[in-house]
């Protein structure tokens, strides 16, 4: 009976194929892991990226604010107050989803508070700055 022998041979071949496939897969996975690791090392994690932005912005703030004339320290305070309300960006996303939820309500409150600040802050700054006049 040649049939069982052929069958056994076929099974052996198949097992061999599966083995190579597994090997290949393993190598592929290793390569993938290696390449993603490299990518991470290359671009850095998002936190490091954000930290970079943060530190640079602190430096920009430091140098820009030291150049502000002391006479305008009050408007500086009210305008920084207004722009710190840019936190409204986070609030808008919270208030944006279609369904009513606790988060959406929180977003609504934050949008309202930040809007008070944005309008109030910029208008009061404008009022102050309009008063500073040179000698006629």
């Amino acid at each position: 009976m040649a049939e069982p022998a052929a069958l056994a041979q076929r099974a052996g071949e198949l097992a061999g194929d599966a083995n190579t496939l597994a090997h290949n897969l393993d190598a592929l996975a290793q390569q993938l892991a290696l390449s993603t690791g490299q990518a991470a090392a290359h671009g850095g994690s998002p936190f490091v990226f954000e930290l970079t932005i943060f530190v640079l912005a602190v430096f920009v703030g430091y140098y820009v604010v030291w150049r502000v004339t002391p006479a305008l320290h009050s408007p500086l305070m009210s305008v920084t107050n207004a722009i710190s309300s840019v936190i409204i960006v986070g609030a808008l996303i919270a208030a944006g989803p279609p369904d009513i939820s606790f988060a959406k309500f929180m977003g609504f409150i934050a949008v309202t508070l930040a809007a008070v600040n944005i309008f109030g802050g910029f208008i009061v700054t404008q009022r102050m700055l309009a008063m500073f006049q040179r000698k006629k």
């Binding site: 943060f54 912005a57 920009v60 703030g61 820009v64 722009i83 710190s84 936190i87």
Partner: peptide, 9 residues
């Protein structure tokens, strides 16, 4: 944007 503005303020 929030990070930059926050750092400025």
């Amino acid at each position: 944007l929030l990070i930059i503005t926050g750092a400025l303020v």
